[in-house]
Amino acid sequence: MDEVAGGLPVREFRWYRGRKHYSGWYHASTTGRMVAYESRLELARILIADFASEVTEIAAQPFQLVGPDGGRIRRHVPDLFLVHAGGLVTVVDVKAPSRMKDPKVIAQFDWTRQACSRRGWIYETWSGAEPAVVENVRFLAGYRRRDLVENSLIARVLAAAAGQPTIGGIEAALAGQPCEIVRPVVLHLIWSGRLVADLRAPLNRASRIRVAA
């Protein structure tokens, strides 16, 4: 499992003018390594995995499954391989909502689910999440690196959050510090899970916030 989680993608990624899909590499704070993606939708699922505190490893295009499926030999490379605290594994295939009911896609999903089940792995098919949540996680990812925020304020922000119910309240409690320094610390602490906010609405000064249990 460690070899799979820490390995390179099993297929080559190509970039060229006119390509319909948006591909690239994302630096995951969970692992400290680059994770490849082949579409914005796939990037969104990687961001959500990187944000989830229970995920400890993220790998893209981690392996190729090969095996019989009725009278044919099927080959498939899943999109993501996630390892959770405690060793639980989730294999993820990302597909656009418009393709989720395609019979060929459904057949591939069913075959992959059976292959994962035999190894005791969870299999997930993902076509998106609540837009506000995805956009908030995408925004918070810009503050995922601790070395880019004012670390000396972390303890003070957490102390202020214990008595203030909103982001604006925390900033007011630290009025001696510029907002442009305090706000990134607050957002980093939400990303890292030390502060909790409702991500179903856009984050702003009025967003309610609490210290994680």
Rank of each mutant, 00 (worst) to 15 (best):
Q164F: 02
E130I: 13
R205P: 03
I122R: 15
N136Q: 14
I209F: 01
V77T: 15
F109H: 00
Q114H: 11
P78H: 03
G18H: 05
A197G: 05
G86C: 12
P103K: 01
V196P: 01
I106Y: 01
G70Q: 08
V77N: 02
A161C: 10
R119G: 13
I73S: 03
I209V: 13
G142W: 10
R113C: 00
A96F: 05
S98D: 14
P97G: 09
P103N: 03
V196Q: 05
E124W: 01
E171N: 07
A59K: 00
H76T: 01
R145V: 05
G87W: 06
P62D: 01
R17F: 11
G70L: 08
P97A: 08
P97L: 06
V10A: 04
L203F: 10
R146C: 04
T90I: 10
A159F: 06
E130C: 06
A201C: 05
E150K: 15
V137R: 01
G163M: 10
R144D: 07
P62Q: 03
G120E: 06
H188E: 06
G24N: 08
L195S: 06
R11D: 10
T112I: 01
Q61K: 04
H188Q: 10
R113Q: 05
T31R: 06
A132V: 15
E42M: 07
Y37W: 09
A59H: 00
A161W: 02
M34H: 06
L88E: 12
A160I: 10
R118E: 15
T112M: 00
A162M: 13
G71V: 09
V10E: 05
P78C: 09
C179P: 11
A175G: 14
Q114C: 05
A52E: 15
H21M: 09
M1K: 08
F81M: 06
G71R: 07
E180D: 14
N136F: 11
H27L: 14
R75S: 11
W15P: 00
V196F: 02
A36M: 12
S152C: 07
R146M: 13
V35K: 13
A161T: 06
I122D: 13
A5Q: 09
D102N: 14
A206F: 06
M34W: 13
R33T: 03
A36E: 08
A212V: 04
G86T: 04
T56Y: 03
E171T: 12
T90V: 12
A59Y: 00
P178W: 07
L153M: 04
R200D: 09
R156Q: 15
G18L: 10
I170N: 11
